[in-house]
Amino acid sequence: MSAFATVAAFDAALRALPAPDEAAIAAAVERQASLTKPAGSLGRLEDIALFLAGWQGKARPTVDRARVTVFAGNHGITAHGVSAFPPAVTAQMVANFEAGGAAINALSGAAGLELKVVALELDRPTADFTVAPAMSAAECLAALSAGAAAVDPALDLLAVGEMGIGNSTAAAALCARSFGGAARDWVGPGTGVDADGIARKIAVVERGLSFHDNTPHTPFETLRRLGGREIAAMAGAVLQARLLRIPVVMDGFISGAALAPLAAACPAITDHCIAGHVSLEPGHARLLDRLGLIPLLSLNMRLGEASGAAIAVSIIRAALAAHNNMATFAEAGVSNAP
Rank of each mutant, 00 (worst) to 15 (best):
E98P: 02
G164T: 03
S41P: 10
L115H: 00
A149I: 03
A138Q: 14
F129G: 12
F85H: 13
A49F: 08
P87I: 03
V82M: 00
D64A: 15
G81F: 10
G109V: 04
S34D: 14
A143F: 12
A59D: 08
L50Q: 14
A59C: 09
L113C: 04
G73E: 13
C140N: 14
A111N: 11
F71T: 01
A159E: 04
A146P: 03
L52N: 03
G76V: 02
G57C: 05
M135S: 06
G43H: 05
E139C: 05
K37R: 09
I165F: 00
E46P: 07
W55G: 07
L42E: 11
G109W: 06
A28M: 05
L115N: 00
D64F: 09
P133N: 14
T130W: 07
S145R: 11
F71Y: 07
S108D: 10
S145G: 10
C140M: 14
G40W: 03
K116P: 02
E46M: 08
A150V: 12
A149F: 04
Q56R: 10
D123Y: 13
K37V: 01
V89F: 01
A84F: 00
A49K: 14
T69Q: 09
L113W: 13
A138R: 10
T169Q: 00
A106R: 08
D123N: 14
A95G: 12
A146Y: 02
R44L: 06
G101K: 11
R60T: 13
A137W: 07
A33V: 06
W55K: 03
